[in-house]
């Protein structure tokens, strides 16, 4: 080995991690230039707002006066003094606990059911299930289907059958608001995760199923648990994230159908509470506190579900 080469090797190993990183950074300048525009916008409109919310949540900022630091006062008020928030929190959890799993399981089951159909039929069924989630304001038709007068199909059918004698004011009745909103939410929720499951199922190597059949898989349920699900774990993870995020962030549909606030706050969620204080009362400090709590809940729920999902397939 020549002397210079030996020297080089020594200096390479003597280079500290920081030095090496710095060299790599310089060598890859162009990569940083490539990510720069996206990361700038992403930081400005996604990262910075989260950080700023946390900071503002410790103040009494209201857009008019100089903000004062109030430390945990907002959090204390939220959990101890705000009855509406407690209603909103309860509704949000009921909502997420029903809509999240229901939409997830329905997406997975439908994707699985249609997996063995011919491509044309599969495309049509996919469209029927996926369309409500992309069709914009189409969920407003639930308002007319379940309208409070006898022209809504729901009331008309119930009246005809003699089950009721008087129209039900579905979206003005505290008992009906929540269940109906849950149904509408599930109806609009077969979105990205659904498509991801369809793709994941299509991507599984068919030979694995045949090998499974030879190895004694007896029915399609065993096949689902031992072969299909473990093979599409990454999609299951991604779908879970999309479903959870959507089920917690669901608010616009409730406002559109039930008005704001909904009757007796029966379908008031944390998202509504946040909008109420943020864009109507301009108590930015307090609304930031609500935002931070919602943020922690969403990210926490995601982390929890990821842990659970890692057990799928018994591996």
């Amino acid at each position: 080995m020549s002397k210079t080469a030996e020297k080089k090797a020594v200096s390479r190993s003597e280079m500290t991690k920081a030095q090496w990183t710095w060299k790599e950074i310089k060598r890859n300048k162009v990569a940083y230039l490539m990510v720069a525009p996206y990361m700038l916008v992403f930081t400005l409109f996604t990262v910075l707002p989260v950080v700023l919310s946390i900071v503002i949540s410790f103040t009494d900022f209201n857009m008019l006066q100089m903000p004062n630091i109030v430390w945990l006062d907002n959090y204390v008020r939220l959990f101890l003094d705000d009855d509406i928030f407690l209603i909103a929190a309860k509704n949000t959890f009921i909502f997420a606990a029903i809509v999240g799993p229901a939409s997830y399981i329905m997406s997975l089951m439908v994707a699985w059911f249609i997996n063995e159909l011919s491509p044309k039929i599969r495309a049509i069924v996919t469209l029927i299930f996926y369309a409500p989630s992309i069709a914009g304001q189409v969920y407003l038709v639930w308002g007319t289907l379940f309208s409070g007068d006898a022209y809504g199909w729901a009331n008309a059918v119930l009246l005809e059958l003699g089950i009721i004698t008087e129209e039900i004011q579905f979206f003005q009745d505290a008992d009906w608001v929540m269940p109906l909103c849950i149904v509408v939410a599930i109806w609009t929720s077969l979105g990205t995760s659904f498509l991801s499951f369809i793709a994941g199922l299509q991507g599984i190597d068919k030979a694995q199923f045949e090998a499974g059949a030879v190895d004694g898989i007896r029915n399609r349920w065993q096949e689902l648990w031992y072969i299909t699900l473990p093979n599409m774990k990454p999609q299951l993870m991604f779908g879970a994230v999309m479903s959870i995020t959507n089920s917690f962030g669901f608010g616009a549909v409730v406002t559109a159908l039930c008005g704001f606030p909904s009757v007796d706050y029966a379908a008031h969620t944390i998202v509504h509470h946040l909008e109420d204080y943020g864009s109507q009362r301009f108590e930015i400090g307090y609304s930031s506190t609500i935002a931070v709590v919602l943020f922690v809940v969403m990210v926490g729920a995601n982390a929890l579900i990821k842990k659970l999902l890692s057990k799928v397939g018994g591996s």
Partner: peptide, 14 residues
Amino acid sequence: MFHKTVTAITCFIL
């Protein structure tokens, strides 16, 4: 993992 509504108000300020 979080919905856009969380950041809407701080985005407005920014």
